[in-house]
């Protein structure tokens, strides 16, 4: 006798393996990255060759810091969603696939969190 309901036992066994959650999150982050990506190109061009003082002065403008934090959060989420699909397509061994997908999430979170902390440290002069 299992504690699982019949529905819980069969859920995820279809060929799709999942619902629309991943697909929708990928589109949502893509839409957000259109303005953020265009803005970042302008930001990156203006920061070419800057030293830390110039970068800090730029980040001290409130909307620059806000947009940078938003960009980092959305960018690494979108990256992780996209890389997941690539790994799912090309890694056929279930065990390796599971390990890689877990590492994919971990790397994205570590990169994203470290970037946001670095941005706050620069902006607030810690």
């Amino acid at each position: 006798m299992s504690l699982q309901t019949d529905l819980a036992r069969v859920r995820g066994l279809g060929s799709a393996k999942e619902g629309t959650g991943h697909w929708w999150a990928q589109r949502l982050t893509a839409v957000a990255l259109v303005p953020l990506g265009i803005w970042f190109v302008f930001a990156a061009v203006s920061l070419a060759g800057a030293n830390l003082g110039e970068f800090r002065a730029w980040l001290t403008v409130p909307y620059n810091l806000i947009l940078m934090v938003l960009l980092v959060g959305v960018l690494f989420h979108h990256m992780q969603l996209g890389m997941q699909v690539v790994f799912e397509d090309y890694i056929h061994n279930e065990r390796s696939k599971t390990v890689v997908l877990i590492l994919n999430k971990f790397v994205a979170v570590i990169l994203g969190v470290s970037c946001i902390i670095a941005l706050l440290r620069v902006a607030f002069g810690g």
Binding site: N51, L52, G53, F55, V72, L75, F76, M79, G82, M83, V86, L111, S114, C115, I117, A118, L119, R121, V122
Partner: peptide, 27 residues
């Protein structure tokens, strides 16, 4: 290009973390 940009995102993270680390690292 998506996979390439993921690699670029790692370099982007290095660049920002260097800024958080200090002036020499950022330079």
């Amino acid at each position: 290009t998506g996979v390439g940009l993921a690699v670029g995102a790692i370099v982007f993270a290095y660049w920002l973390n260097a800024a958080g680390y200090g002036a020499d690292a950022f330079a």
